[in-house]
Write a protein that binds this DNA or RNA. Structure first.
Lengths: 335, 335
DNA sequence: CTGTTAGCGCGTTCAG
DNA sequence: CTGAACGCGCTAACAG
């Protein structure tokens, strides 16, 4: 690898001139030309380490995912990569698998790699392991969950409002026994989505019976069990609060040979490839992944440029509801 | 950030001793103790750049994905991350979206970031943009497709044999009109899978009619059209060669209100979450993702330690076939 | 075993 | 506008 010194010697100028050339300063045309030739001839490439030693910048950001197994995760990573790439940045990726201890360790690890910023997906404010973000010297963006640290931006979606919409519609279609499979209420998004469900019932002055609520644990298996339980409660419509559990719920429905959009109405949170291959297609709440990714990167880079001086903000984006025929009017109710 | 010099001064020893301590050399117990205290008191952290300037190592590897939208991709990334993490390495991730030009550019980019090695997923030998791998100074592992460069390892699966198994079974179950949706034959995996199909027919002395082959383009939409076409050919069983096209095929099946495992037999290449939620579950060829990821990382690290001296090899892993009841005996044929 | 010191490649002073 | 020299933090080679 050619160094700046070699380029200088080859070009017959000083290293200072080469450095200035590389950093966009103007210098004598003949020198400029000689340097350009030298760089080309020697195939000079800047040295990442030497540069970083001075600038303390890597032009890379750390991306901490809570999991990697959903359409949401995969699309988000892809989007962030796309946007970042255009700015000459790259992703350091890691998956903390919903484990607060791992997240702490990974944050430290990324810092030791001198990332210029951090994007964290799905971290809970309540985790004590996040203390290290309190006085973090690099910019941090939280996605999915709001994090209340003075410098940290949060990008979230209207979990509550969008869930409310779907349940409202079910109620409007005369479903009186609506079953819901919810996630553990220890988590922010789980709570918000549940609140949206309650909002809908309240607005329409209806009551959600406790026996029509199944508390799952995010796993597909709990979705499966939940749906079996709810069917035993003779619900006519079901809403599932997350992707994995909806897979399990669908499995139960199919095993029992029930037909969605006929025997039962169904909707769930989170779009996935397969939501479109059923007939009818499934009604789902679709998060604006591209917008989330774009905004996250834009804000992060802005903070990097401002040396992390910007005050933390919360951005709330709107989900899309894909209305399909998996929800129908309750057939047991006539007008 | 405290430096090694400050630690040395605080501990009352020389920088050399501190450096040696940090690198695991033995030194006088009293000095060891003083240094440890100093490191703790000053909260010393090694400087990534200074270290790299000497060692030329980043303990990071570049991971180049062809896409990020399948279960396969997501699981592979997660696995590689897991295995790498234990060794103190991290992933630089990028997605070249099946674009040879982007791959070339990304390789250069990663090299400029001084990655210690490269894992490339799904690159085709025929791409001229891959020339840069010919005399690559860092280790390279190719996943999915074999790459014939002297230093490059390839980790592939038995596309051909596993496809052959599935088609053979369909033939054994008296299916005479088997439809297949295949991918463009410009790509390695597409060719292998197609060859597996042909193998099965040949072995059983049967003929695959050209009119029962649909050439898709990997897209879901082509799968949709392909299935509609094949149904018009009155096939009794269908095999789809990749994930996206199988989604489209399933959509058509459902739209036409056909029941898999009754009206039609179905199988496809690549496992996905939703393959399990149908009733019956879908027969799929499942790639050994974890083994692929583990082996890739192991070989890569081995090559890094050997300074890329190891001769390139091809490793072929075996797919798993998940046999489910989506394939049945051809009901129109009696014994 | 320990201390000293010369670079690694670059940016940024200075003095010219 | 240019060139020389220093220092970023660390390792390794050498001398003690």
């Amino acid at each position: 690898m050619a160094t700046i010194q070699e380029v200088a010697k080859y070009a017959g100028v000083s290293v200072g001139s080469v450095s200035r050339y590389l950093n966009g300063h103007k210098l004598r045309p003949d020198n400029t030309k000689k340097i350009e030739e030298a760089i080309h001839a020697l195939d000079y490439k800047e040295n990442f380490f030497a540069k970083g030693l001075k600038s303390n910048e890597t032009h890379s950001i750390g991306l901490l995912m809570n999991n990697m197994q959903s359409n949401f995760s995969a699309s988000l990573v892809a989007r962030i990569d796309d946007v970042l790439e255009k700015e000459g940045y790259t992703i350091l990726l890691s998956n903390y698998r919903d484990d607060p201890n791992r997240i702490e360790q990974k944050i430290a690890f990324f810092k030791s790699r001198a990332v210029d910023g951090l994007i964290i997906v799905g971290a809970e404010q309540s985790w004590p392991q996040l203390e290290c973000l309190k006085n973090c010297d690099i910019p941090v963006i939280s996605i999915i969950t709001p994090l209340d640290y003075s410098q940290t931006d949060s990008i979230i979606v209207d979990n509550r409002a969008s869930t409310e919409k779907v349940i409202s519609r079910m109620l409007s279609l005369s479903h009186e026994r609506i079953g819901v499979i919810v996630a553990p209420q220890t988590d922010y998004v789980a709570r918000e989505r549940f609140l949206g469900i309650l909002d809908a019932f309240e607005t329409q002055n209806k009551l959600l019976s406790e026996s029509n609520i199944y508390y799952g644990d995010y796993s597909k298996d709990s979705g499966k069990r939940g749906m079996a339980y709810l069917l035993s409660q003779e619900v006519s419509a079901v809403f599932v609060c997350n992707y994995n559990m909806s897979l399990g719920a669908l499995q139960t429905i199919h095993e029992k040979q029930l037909v969605i959009g006929k025997d039962i109405s169904f909707a769930s949170y989170d779009y996935f490839d397969a939501s479109d291959i059923f007939y009818p297609k499934l009604t789902v709440i679709k998060q604006p992944i591209k917008e989330i990714g774009t905004l996250a990167v834009e804000r992060l880079l802005e903070k990097i440029r401002n040396k992390n001086q910007l005050q933390g903000q919360i951005f709330t984006l709107k989900n899309d509801v894909l209305w399909r025929d998996s929800i129908i009017k309750n057939p047991t109710k006539s007008e």
